[in-house]
Design a protein around this nucleic acid. Structure first.
Length: 154
DNA sequence: GCCAACGTTGGC
DNA sequence: GCCAACGTTGGC
């Protein structure tokens, strides 16, 4: 079992949207970054735990936890001309982009803000710390537990 | 809304 | 396969 952090813009899709989705589940679509794609395709497995992180918003923070309930599947939006996620260079024979399915687990009692993460000497490995634009990133078991504690996870 | 940092593209 | 130019992300 592994731990991850997935970024999302709450204006587009928030932890509350996940919570209120049918079966509290969603197909995590629209990842269009190769490093993130490789994690999704090769490393993210059913049963893995995922921090949901809100970015590009007032208070960027880890806000909740989800579980991976289905591994990598082809993201159909890459073939949809009307979608923002359309990719003319992808083909049905050799699709470029995949997504996984997540199910809501819980909100953190206290969101763990980017500010707090940056200021925390116990968090050194999280890619979020080094800025970067990676939208899917691994979290070490130690840092997972630490952030869970800060956030008051059940 | 600005802009720094980074990823991607494409010419050579 | 290098690297400049360009586009995008995301914090502030």
């Amino acid at each position: 079992m592994a731990y991850w952090l997935f970024k999302t813009e709450p204006d587009a899709f928030s932890i509350d949207d996940l919570h209120q989705a049918p079966e509290q589940s969603t197909f995590w679509e629209g990842i269009r970054n190769y490093q993130a794609r490789n994690f999704l395709r090769d490393d993210v497995k059913v049963g893995d735990q995922v921090f949901i992180y809100h970015s590009s918003c007032k208070v960027p923070a880890v806000v909740g936890i989800a579980t991976v309930t289905k591994g990598a599947e082809v993201d159909p939006h890459q073939f949809d001309l009307s979608s923002d996620y359309y990719d003319a260079k992808s083909s049905q024979d050799n699709p470029r982009w995949v997504g996984v399915t997540l199910r809501y687990e819980q909100h953190l009692t206290r969101p763990v803000t980017l500010k707090a993460i940056k200021a925390d000497a116990a968090i050194t490995e999280l890619a979020l710390k080094k800025a970067g634009r990676l939208s899917i990133m691994p979290v070490t078991e130690t840092e997972w537990a630490h952030i869970c504690q800060l956030g008051g996870a059940q």
